[in-house]
Amino acid sequence: MSTILTHIAISDGKIKRSSLEVLSHCTQLANDNGHQSEAVIIDANASQYVDDVKKYGVSKVYVIEDPIFKNHINTPLLKALTTVMEQADPYIFAFASTEGTKDILGALAANQDAAVLSDVSEFNLIDGGISAKRPVMAAKILSSNEAKADKILVSVRSGSYELAENETDGEVVNIDFSFNESELKATLREVIGASGDKIDLSEAEAIVAAGRGAKDEEGQKLINELAETLGAAIGASRALTEAGIMDPSLQIGQTGKVVSPQLYIAVGISGAIQHVAGMTNSKVIVAINKDPDAPIFDVADYGIVGDLYKVLPPFIEELKKIKG
C-alpha cells in the first residue's frame, strides 16, 4: 500500500477548487488500487481548512501552519513540501496547476530526485508509475506520457476532474515547522493588485473575455456591464493585457490562465491558437466578432457576426430580461 498525496492550495482565504478536483481523483485512484489518499495543507491558517478537506476521502491530513505562508514565497514553501515528503513518503504527490505550483514543481522534483509531469489533463496509475495526457503545441495536440520512478510529482489543469465528496474520519497530523528569516534567499517586497473580492478566473462559472476589438472605454464599459449582468468574471486576450488596458492576471491562454467555465463569451477576440489554448475546455463558447472568418468561430457554439458596439447593448438587455 502506497500513499497518494495531494497538495491543497489556498488562495484568498479559500481552498482552490482545482485542488479538490485533484484530491477527488487521487482518492478514487487510491480506492481503486489499494493505496491511501492523503492531503497536505500549507498555509498561515492551515488548520481552518482541515474539515473541508476531510470530506474528500483522505486517511490523513498533514497540516503545516506558519505565518510565513501568508504570501507565496518559494523558499519556505519548498522547505515545507520537502518536510512533508520526508514524513509522508508519498509514491505520487499531486498538485493543482496554479502559478504557485508552477513556481516550485521543478525545484521540488530536483530536490527529491522525483519524476515530474506538469500541467496534465488526466493521469492514471500504471505498473511502476503513472501515465498522463498533456496538451502540447499550444494545446492543438495531446501527448501521452509515462513517468516511472520511486517518487512522482504531477500537476493537473483546473477543470480536469469533477468534485467527488466521500467523507471519512481522516487523521490530522500537525507537522512542526519553523522558518528562519535568514533562510530566505530572496525578499518579497510587496504584492501588487491581488484581486481580493474579484472572482478567480480559474474557478469561474462564467467568463466574459475582452480582446482588441473592445479596447476603448466604451468597449470596456460594455464588457463590465455584460459581466455584471451574468455575475461573470472578466478575462482578456493578450492584446489587452499587453497594452496595459487589462490587468495581466486576467490573461487567458498559453501564457495566461487555463479556464474551464460553463459559459465563455469572447468579445472582439480573433481566436489565435495561443488564446484558444486556454479556453477550449469551456462548456459553452459564445463569440462576438465582426469578421465572419475569425478563427474564434471555429470553436464557438454560438457565433455572433457583428460589431460588438451594436450587438452588446441588445444582448445585455435581453439577458437582463431573462435574469428578471
Binding site: N145, A149, A300
Partner: peptide, 21 residues
C-alpha cells in the same frame, strides 16, 4: 529521462456551432 512521451493524438476538435448573421 524519468518521463517518456509514448504517443501523440490530435486533440478532439470542438465542432463549430451556429453562426448568426
Amino acid at each position: 529521462a524519468k518521463t517518456t512521451v509514448t504517443g501523440y493524438q490530435e486533440k478532439p476538435e470542438r465542432e463549430a456551432g451556429k453562426k448568426f448573421e
